[in-house]
Amino acid sequence: MYVEMRHINKTFDGFQASDDVNFGIERGQLAALLGPSGSGKTTILRMIAGLDKPDSGDILINETRVNDLPGSKRGIGFVFQNYALFRYMTVEENIAFGLKVQKKSRQEITSRVEELLELISMKDLGRRYPHQLSGGQRQRVAFARALAPSPKLLLLDEPFAAIDAKVRRELRTWLKDMIDRVKITSIFVTHDQEEAMEVAGTIILTNQGRIEQIGTPEEICKNPKTEFVADFIDVKLGTGHF
């Protein structure tokens, strides 16, 4: 297992956000944390990233317990829901931020930024500011910024929530391609099961702070373990697939 959560519990002000969460993800997988809002999926992501601390339980990355390691030292790239691009910095400066912090040489930074701009096909837009970009372009910059320090694990919080419904499908394919190309273990959070089915290789279904089922999209569709899973998949499919 590359990422593993063992008996994780977490409460916020008396609200149980994680209730004995256990799961593991193999290296190179693209997994989706799927569930209705308030089901604790974002909390799981934030705990893996070190943005929140679990009350009890162990988080393992590559067989190492990382509970006490700050998020920045876990080798993780994080794409935030609204991208959280630094608006007073250009696209290039945004991407370079993590490298600058690591005190990389200027040469190294320039070549890495160029490489990433090429990867996201935004070579000519490096000098722009976030407010001069479309929603899709912002997402790509956020993706590149997260990848810049060469993380081993990529976490994405509702990566399509801020995108127009029209271009969402297109971006899904783009993101899946990119992750395949970079070959990075990735976990993304979504409340949209259609999105999860289409993009992820593994789906982790959450409900009320618990994990309901883990499996490939086919397994979950054909063999829902609980009533909740059956309902969630069914209802959503009914409305989502026309």
């Binding site: 290296r27 590559n62 190492t64 090429e118 993380p151 081993k152 990075i184």
Partner: peptide, 22 residues
């Protein structure tokens, strides 16, 4: 360039990092 990305994920950065004092 493709290769440089692949190298990124095969290196086990985490293991060397774990000794870093918090």
């Amino acid at each position: 360039k493709k290769k440089s990305f692949e190298q990124d994920i095969t290196g086990d950065g985490i293991n060397s990092i774990k000794k870093v004092v918090e």
